[in-house]
Design a protein around this nucleic acid. Structure first.
Lengths: 292, 292
DNA sequence: ATTTGATATAGATCACCTCTATGACAAGTT
DNA sequence: AACTTGTCATAGAGGTGATCTATATCAAAT
């Protein structure tokens, strides 16, 4: 069986055409090179070098093998370089799962910062609901997921990232309701605009109403945060939304926040990763940016 | 520095996804595999495997490296297979130099036998005069040369292969000259047909005449053995040619050999190879056939 | 709670790679 | 012709690092 270190010695010797010089390059003594070449020739049963009075020269068979060995070592060198690039974040990819709204309203600054800092890393985003995303995470299709909390899943490790504060907002047509605190009963009787059933935001607000004895039936159900805000602005009713998603609109006066007698519970956003998997270097870099 | 044997262990471990099974395949113990993987990971500064409760799984970085290592080892395997093919004469090439006439009239049986026995070997022939051919041999452009002897060249090793017997032949028009022995003087006065100046055959016959005090001036000089025989047959004169090259014509009665008072010296054909070079396996196979 | 399958580590062992020393050879120089 | 130089090959000794045995640790399965 050929010791792979002999290939390295063979390669250097072929390039130097001189055992003594090859030994110097390899930082071993000349008899070591002679020994390794001899072992290789015996192992393959063929002469690989002509011994001349001044140095050596590859035989026909040696030249044939040389081509293969040279390519093989070039491949290993490329592999090592690629690993170094991954390590130094010059190359690589990161696969992140999050809902569209979280991507747009929460992650954009960090994604931009990460992309600016590591332009060689390819960022792949996949959107979906928390349930879908955690499934992809567990199946190894994505590296990390930004999810609404709480999540109980023994396969995942969860880190809290941020707190989301929700609120109800209205447009100009319903602005009179912002003059005073509103009871939950009053609120339940207004036309409500919610996200689709099953979204974490939707589930959390339904629980809030139920805890107070109300079953609400929203007038409008939408799948998009921007549309929620837009329909509220247009006077279709009262939208339930995370405050940080509509900061601009609140500041500019196109939307107005209702004041509730009963406070809304804060919600959390977390980072989920697979419990038994070490993150790639690229993913670790992103997580670090998230925690800043 | 990465010991190349670790790559082999890495490759097997990645394929088995289990250190214990990889150890079995490699005929070493499981702690040896664990040790090698650990050394590799420390050397590259990256985790290459996730340790699971049942076996291991490549990390992102490990998968990247795996692709390179797999290709690299495939290249080495191809190299070993190619060497084995060369060794077993399933593949390879042989480069032979000889004059056209030697190829056609002397080597064809052996070339046919060799090609039949080793159809995977590529036979490359280059023709030329002995001087040109020995030059190519010394420059490593051909593996062996079939040459007229004697040759004195310290860079070459010469083996005698065969003896060539030369003769003068005539067609029907000069047939009367074959009735009795002819003196050299008589011969010199006949119209002679020779090969071009510089060919070994030409040189040897000029020496023969000169040793007897005659300077001959052939009527016809040709560069082709077949044309020599044809012009003799057509009655243009007396051609000087190696007997073995016109055996068929002599046997069938289209050419006739003159009987000389002074015997012609026999000439030898030899095989020349470079003195300090080991022949390739393919060339050795051909030399063996030549010596049969 | 116990068993099973698997990896990681510690310390001992030994195989083989490497060393030093030197022989052999051919080309180059004097 | 004698000597020097550069280079490869071999012998025998040494030592290092890869491998071993033994066992700890852990999580999944029973």
């Amino acid at each position: 069986m050929i010791n792979l270190e002999w290939y390295r010695i063979f390669l250097h010797t072929a390039k130097c055409r001189n055992l003594t010089k090859a030994a110097q390059e390899l930082h071993i003594t000349q008899p070591s090179v002679s020994y390794a070449i001899k072992q290789m020739e015996e192992a393959v049963g063929l002469k690989l070098f002509h011994r001349l009075s001044k140095g050596v020269e590859l035989t026909e068979e040696g030249r044939t093998l040389f081509d293969y060995v040279e390519q093989s070592f070039a491949m290993l060198d490329s592999g090592k370089k690629h690993l170094l690039n991954l390590k130094q974040l010059h190359q690589g990819e990161i696969r992140i799962g999050a809902s569209d709204s979280l991507i747009k309203h929460l992650l954009l600054p960090q994604l931009n910062a990460y992309h600016k800092q590591y332009p060689g890393i390819r960022i792949r985003l996949s959107h979906g609901k928390t349930g879908e995303i955690t499934k992809r995470l567990k199946e190894g299709d994505i590296d990390c997921a930004i999810v609404h909390l709480p999540i109980e899943d023994s396969d995942l490790t969860i880190h809290t990232l941020a707190t989301l504060e929700d609120c109800f907002v209205v447009g100009e047509d319903f602005r009179e309701w912002t003059n005073r605190s509103i009871s939950t009963k009053e609120l339940a009787e207004l036309p409500l605009i919610f996200l689709s059933p099953g979204s974490s935001t939707r589930v959390s607000i339904e629980k809030w109403f139920a805890a107070q004895g109300f079953a609400v039936n929203p007038d409008i159900e939408l799948g998009n945060i921007d549309l929620l805000a837009e329909f509220a602005r247009l006077g279709y009713g009262v939208a339930f939304i995370s405050r940080s998603f509509v900061q601009d609109e609140l500041r500019s006066g196109t939307l107005f926040e209702l004041t509730l007698e009963e406070p809304l519970p804060p919600r959390s956003i977390g980072l989920a990763v697979r419990r038994d998997m070490k993150l790639s270097v690229a993913a670790e870099g992103f997580v670090k940016i998230l925690h800043m």
